[in-house]
Amino acid sequence: MNDDIKRIGADAPARIAAATSVEELRAVEADLLGKKGELTALKKGMGGLDPEGRKVAGAALNEAREALEAALGSRRSELEAVERAATVAAERLDLTELLELPERGSLHLVTQTWDRLVDVFIGMGFTVAEGPEVETDWYNFEALNIPAAHPARGMWDTLYVDLGDPETVLLRTHTSPVQIRVMTDGEPPIYAVMPGRVYRRDTADASHMPVFHQIEGLVVDRNISFADLAGTLEAFTSAYFGGSIHSRLRPSYFPFTEPSAEYDINCVFCEGNGCRTCGQTGWLELGGCGMVHPTVLTNVGLDPEKWSGFAFGFGLDRLALMRHGVDDIREMYTGDVRFLEQFPS
């Protein structure tokens, strides 16, 4: 019997090595160790041995089985690795061979700009206020120190709606009426920005739309000065446009602020060196600002001797266009997917 065991043990490595697949190896294993396998048959034959012989043969059989199992196991690992490698090789995918992309949407350029601006101002301690787009003459003009027939009304081409007395209800021409609402509804100190949609009686062209967007800022507190206005706009300018872009203020006129100023920034394209976009001046006109006019404060029930404030405002669409080099504002409003999808974020 020992000879048989030895023979099996001696033959086995070659037979195991000859198996070229896990499948074949399984057959070899069955032949050797299975229910009808050679070693199993020898084990069954042990019944005929004396106790001492059985003990010796049993030990030899166990030893042989362990050796075979080890050899089979190692061969199986080898073959599995080979087969896995083959499978993996056969499973190769070309990751650029994409049939159906999941659809990706996009935020409108105006929204993206709106959010960016609002985020900067929130970081500067401002809240965000909104108001109706259809306004009364009071909020849009009168309270802002622009009485009827005031020549300054010519600064805004107003669209009126057929409500109330003629020319008393209108599509707001600027976000400034929200200032009046904020001051009327709340109490100082006020630190608020007011983004919103505004309307002008204007024919659409590459740089104008009858509907566009502005953002307005308002601060009312004790001892607020023109220096605070300049400092706030400078802080905003470098936060939004980057540290190399600075602001400047130039005298201007708005009925609702005094002193009033134009708010310019270094040209973001040439960083102030002069280029075509800025007309070689190195500056871009961004918007208007100034100290809240005493009449406006009085109109909302605030004592101009106790409170002072500043306001500023500028167009939002132009910033959106500038950021992405879009040269026609009308593109933003057609809803053309080929335009919208260009600006995922």
């Binding site: 301690g125 220096a227 605070d228 400092g231 706030t232 203020l249 002193p259």
Partner: peptide
Amino acid sequence: YSRIVGRAPTSAHTG
């Protein structure tokens, strides 16, 4: 206007 020195906001307000 350019000679009026800007005062950086030191607001204690939260946005």
